[in-house]
Amino acid sequence: MSVSSGRKTIRILRAELDKLMTLPWIWTAVTVTFLVHLLLTAAFTSASLQEGAAAPGILNTGLASMSYLQAGFIILGILAACSEYTGGQIRTTLTVIPWRGRQLFMKHLALTLITIPAAFILTASGVLYAGWRLDGHAAGVEPHEVIQALLGATGYLTLTTLLSAAIGALLRRTLPALVILLGYYFIISPWSRGLLPAYFPDTAGRYMYLLPSSGELNVLTPVQGAGILMIWSVSLVAVAIVVYRIRDA
């Protein structure tokens, strides 16, 4: 009654999806992020209407709250990873699925499957809202630009979530992971912008959704930005898996 490796893998993925879906915090995080995002987009839209700047961009306004939005996805990643270490669930997980590398990989895959639609819906709703409010005031945008920016933003948020999950899995504790990630994304990175090269996960990843015409000098193309962020995320997930295999649960 040997089970094929493929079916075993599917089972692990389904179990990991099941785990994420039945964790109420995940849904709270996504819902709160969605509401805050809409509020902030409304604020940005009003601000750009008030300023009366010449032709505010629908995409720039709709995606203006990306820097806040990423906080929600950082939390999502940390929650997914650190929830294992609450209530001793990790012991159950590892006695049911003792293949550590495959288990943690599947957890990240399950998280990706949840994050992609969530990120897309969130970013798209922001852009739609801005498009509706700025209708007539804003410069026209090409549909392919919108799609490109939305895909870029979705990819950015998904990769950021994976990176956060990897940090969470390495640290095993919610608050330290949160302090480090928020500290980097919101304190260190904004202050050191211009001092550090654009090869850090957030600075490189930004080019995935920024429009080429957005004024500042574009150092990277969206594909280059995506590539650099992907290298960061994938290598951190790999480090997390290696450490997870070596250390005591």
Partner: peptide, 25 residues
């Protein structure tokens, strides 16, 4: 629990503080 207050206050103490944004509105 620490997650919500930590996130709110850390972001609000940053350069992209909510308060600064709202002050524009």
């Amino acid at each position: 629990q620490g997650m919500i207050p930590l996130t709110m206050l850390m972001i609000n103490s940053s350069l992209v503080s909510f308060s600064v944004l709202l002050a524009k509105v």
